[in-house]
């Protein structure tokens, strides 16, 4: 019996397109809170592990290698060394806004001076993208208005 058979020729298939957009709020907690308070004052705070002595940038309240609390803050930077980098020619939507940014832009993974085994990621000034390589020295460029968020720092630039 074929009476119920679907007509598969030029079959219409239904789909829906949506942008799922959800607002969040992210509590910093005291450790990351200290870090963002520091950015307001143009300072980088790391936590230091009381056991192995390594510094963590941005700070974390626990050293996962030693599994001990790490609540002692030390100041690191402001200059640092590029350990690695990603130059993006293909931009995906920024999940914070849903918008796609212009390319190229780059992320640099920076070991801040005084931070012996941890790295901090931020952008690099567009003009410095062609000069990027591992080992290059960078310094922060600060935003005029600082409110305690990652945009308090605009980007790194190469420290000539």
């Amino acid at each position: 019996m074929a009476k119920n058979k679907l007509n598969t020729q030029a079959e219409e298939l239904i789909s829906i397109q949506v942008v799922n957009s959800i607002d969040y709020s992210f509590p910093t907690g005291p450790i990351m809170g200290k870090w963002f308070q520091g950015l307001k004052e143009k300072k980088f705070y790391a936590t230091k592990c009381p056991s192995c002595g390594r510094t963590m940038t941005p700070p974390r309240g626990c050293c996962a290698l030693c599994v001990v609390r790490s609540e002692e803050f030390v100041e690191v930077g402001p200059k640092g060394t590029v350990e690695n980098y990603d130059i993006a020619y293909y931009a995906s939507p920024d999940p914070l806004t849903g918008k796609v940014r212009s390319t190229p832009y780059a992320a640099v993974f920076v070991r801040m001076d005084g931070s012996d085994c941890d790295i901090f990621t931020h952008g690099i000034k567009d003009e410095d993208i062609p000069k990027l390589k591992r080992g290059v020295r960078v310094r922060p460029v600060w935003n005029e208005v600082r409110t305690g968020c990652i945009e308090d720092m605009l980007y790194f630039e190469i420290d000539a």
């Binding site: 941005p58 690695n84 995906s92 920024d94 999940p95 914070l96 993974f109 990621t121 952008g123 990652i150």
Partner: peptide
């Protein structure tokens, strides 16, 4: 998924890395 790479960026810390994270795409 409109953008798998956009989705993957949500694994990064929203406060200080998500705006620069490039999903599974990296040249490191």
């Amino acid at each position: 998924a409109g953008s798998t790479t956009g989705g993957i960026t949500n694994m990064a810390d929203p406060l200080w890395y998500r705006h620069l994270q490039t999903g599974a795409l990296t040249s490191t």
